[in-house]
Design a protein around this nucleic acid. Structure first.
Lengths: 352, 352
DNA sequence: TTGTAGGCGTTATCAG
DNA sequence: CTGATAACGCCTACAA
C-alpha cells in the first residue's frame, strides 16, 4: 500500500513505435523531393495542389518520393507566398458549452479530410476579446472563419468583410448576415415554447434566460407569442454569462422570491432549465404537476435527469457539419446556397 | 403572433462602431512603418522583439507610428524567417470535457497577455489522430505544445522531442516525462479513493472506469490499496471513451447485472459517477445508505445533484495556469523547475 | 506538361 | 545603436 504522504509515480503505458517510420531531424523541403524525383520544385508543388495538371507518370514518381520522405509543405511559407492558409478558425463564445463543442466537432469532421486545419478560438461573449481575435486574423489569413453565433459589433462586421474570406455565422437567423449562414430562428424557438406551454393549458408563465444576444431573441419571441395566445408572462428573469447548473438554481430561487404564482416556466438554455429543475425538486415542487418546465438546447444532463426535461432543440453537430460542407462547396467555386435554416425540434421528456 | 409555418428572422442587435478606429484594407507592412518613422525595417523589427537594443528616442517615434498604423507583424513571415511562431498548441483528448476546457482556459489566460496565441487541437483519445496532429506541428513550428495527458506512443514521444520545442504533459505523473510536466498521480487518486471508502467502513467495493490510460492507472492504485486495506474488490468494469452520463448509467446497470453484493463504488470519472448515481436512484437505491459512491474529477452536475457526489479532484484551471507560467519562465530562459505536482483534494458532498 | 524568375514580409548575420 | 544584405520555403506569373 502506497504511503499517503509520499506521491507515487504513474506507471504510464508506453506503446512501442511501429517499425519503418522514422522522422528525420529537419523536415524535408520541396527542393529535396524535387531533386530526388528528378523534377523542378514547382512540379512537386503542382502534384500537391493541382494534381490533374501533372503527367500521371511523373506524378506517381513524385508521390512515391513524397511518401518516402514524409514531405509536407511548410504552411508558413505557403501562406506567405499564396496569401492564404489551410487554417480555418472556429470561434466559440464559450469553450465549455456542450453544444458549441459538438458543432465544432462536426465542422472539423467535414473540413479535415479535405486538408484544412480547424483551430478553435474563444471569444468569451466579450466584444473586446472578439475585436482582438479578429485583428489577429489579419495576419494569419485563414481560409475561412466560423462563429458559433453572429457578429453584433459593426466594427467587427466591417473588419471581417475586409478580410475577404468566407465568414460563416451560425446559431441565429439574422436578416443581414455578413456572408454565409447556418442557423435557426431564436425568435421562433421562443414562439414554439409559448405554443407548447399554451397547448398544455398553462396560462401564467415565466421566462429565464440571458438578457442579451440570443437569450433576448428567444425571450422576445416567447413574450410576443405568449401574449398573442392569451398567456400572462408574470416574470422575466435575465442572467449574465451562464457557467453551470448553479446559475439555473439561483435564477429559479430568484423567480420564486418575486412571488406571484406561475404554472409554467421557459428557460432559454438547458443548463438554466436543468438547474431550475434541480432547485424546484429540492424545494419539494413536483414537475410537471406543480410547474411545467421547458428548456432550450438539449444538454446531456437534461436527458438523464428525472423527470427528463422537455426541450426545444436542433442538431448541433449538423450545424457544424453543414457549415463545413457549404464552405467546401463555396471554396471549390460552386455557386451554392449561402444560407441554410436549421430545423428546430421539440423533444418531449415529461417536464411539461 | 408569428406564423408557425414560416420562419422569422432574428432581429439581431447591432452594436455601432466606436469612432476613430478604422482598419485599412491591407494590413500595413514593416516597410511602411519604417519609412514613416524614417528608419530601416530592421529597426522596427527590433523595437518589437528587442526593444532594449534601440535608442529610447527612436523607439518612441517608431512605437507612435506602430500605434497610428495599427501595424502587427505577419506571423507567417515571422515564423518562416525565424523558425518559430508565437503559436502555442494545446491538445485536448476530448473537447467536450469540462475539466480539459477549464485547463485550456487557464493556459490561455497565462499565455495570451504575453503575446502568445493558444490554439486548441483535438486528439480524440486516438493514436492515429495524435500522430497526424504531431506531424502537422513540424510545419507550424509552434513555440510550445501542451497536452491534457501524457504521450504514450513512443513514435510520438520521439517526434515531439525532435521538434526541439518545450512540450508540456499534464494530468498524470509519469516517471519519465518528455519535457515539462504539471500533473498529479492517478495511482494516488485511486489509493485515496480506497482509503476513503475503507475509512467509512466499507468492505465490498467495485470500480468503474476507462480501461485504458489514466482510468487504468486509477484502477490499479485503487485495487492495490484496497487489497492492502483488506477491502474486497468484487467487480471492475472497464468502459471505452466516455461521452456522457448515459455511459455511467449503462456501466452501473452492467455492474448490478453481474450480481454479488457491494457496499461501495468508486468511479474514475465524475460523468460515470453521476450517471451511476442517477441510475442507482432510478432503481430505488438510497445513496449512501445502500451504496456509497465516490467519483473523480469534479464536474458541474456532481455538485448540483442530490445527494451531492463526494469526489476526489484537483484544480483544473490551475493546471493550465501553472503550465502557462512554467512555460513562460522556461521560454524566458529562467532555469526554473520543470515538473510540478498538483495536489489532489477530497470534496465531501454526502454520497459516501 | 514542365520550367524559370522573382517575391511574399520578416529577421539573422555581419558590417559600420 | 543602426543599417545593408540575404535567406527562410513556397507559389504566382509567365515562358517554353
Amino acid at each position: 500500500m502506497p504511503d499517503p504522504t509520499r506521491p507515487t509515480f504513474d506507471d504510464v503505458l508506453r506503446v512501442p513505435a511501429p517499425p519503418g517510420r522514422a522522422a528525420s531531424g529537419r523536415p524535408p523541403r520541396i527542393e529535396e523531393v524535387a531533386s530526388r524525383a528528378g523534377v523542378s520544385p514547382i512540379t512537386v508543388s503542382r502534384v500537391l495542389r493541382h494534381p490533374e495538371m501533372v503527367n500521371p507518370e511523373t506524378r506517381g514518381r513524385i508521390l512515391e518520393v513524397i511518401e518516402a520522405t514524409g514531405y509536407a509543405s511548410n504552411p508558413h511559407a505557403r501562406a506567405l507566398r499564396s496569401g492564404r492558409s489551410n487554417v480555418v478558425v472556429a470561434f466559440v463564445s464559450n469553450i465549455l458549452s456542450q453544444q458549441f463543442g459538438m458543432a465544432v466537432r462536426g465542422f472539423a469532421a467535414a473540413l479535415e479530410p479535405e486538408g484544412f486545419e480547424v483551430l478553435v478560438g474563444q471569444t468569451s461573449y466579450s466584444y473586446a476579446k472578439e475585436v482582438a481575435m479578429i485583428q489577429s486574423l489579419r495576419g494569419i489569413r485563414p481560409a475561412a472563419v466560423m462563429f458559433t453565433g453572429v457578429i453584433e459589433l459593426e466594427e467587427n462586421r466591417a473588419a471581417l468583410q475586409e478580410l475577404a474570406i468566407p465568414v460563416i455565422e451560425t446559431w441565429a437567423y439574422p436578416r443581414d448576415p455578413i456572408d454565409m449562414l447556418v442557423g435557426f430562428s431564436n425568435a421562433d424557438a421562443g414562439a414554439m415554447a409559448a405554443r407548447r406551454l399554451a397547448a398544455a393549458g398553462h396560462r401564467r408563465v415565466a421566462f429565464i434566460g440571458r438578457s442579451g444576444g440570443r437569450g433576448a431573441l428567444r425571450r422576445d419571441g416567447f413574450r410576443s407569442t405568449a401574449q398573442a395566445l392569451g398567456l400572462e408572462v408574470i416574470h422575466e428573469i435575465g442572467v449574465g454569462e451562464i457557467t453551470g447548473l448553479a446559475d439555473g438554481r439561483a435564477a429559479f430561487a430568484d423567480l420564486l422570491a418575486r412571488g406571484g404564482s406561475i404554472d409554467a416556466l421557459f428557460c432559454a438554455n438547458d443548463l438554466l432549465a436543468t438547474g431550475a429543475l434541480i432547485e424546484a425538486r429540492a424545494r419539494g415542487l413536483v414537475i410537471p404537476h406543480d410547474l411545467a418546465l421547458l428548456g432550450f438546447g438539449d444538454n446531456d444532463v437534461a436527458a438523464q435527469i428525472t423527470p427528463g426535461l422537455t426541450t426545444i432543440t436542433f442538431d448541433a453537430p449538423a450545424i457544424g457539419r453543414t457549415a463545413g460542407e457549404l464552405l467546401l462547396a463555396h471554396l471549390a467555386g460552386a455557386a451554392t446556397e449561402q444560407h441554410r435554416m436549421v430545423e428546430l425540434v421539440l423533444v418531449e421528456r415529461g417536464s411539461v
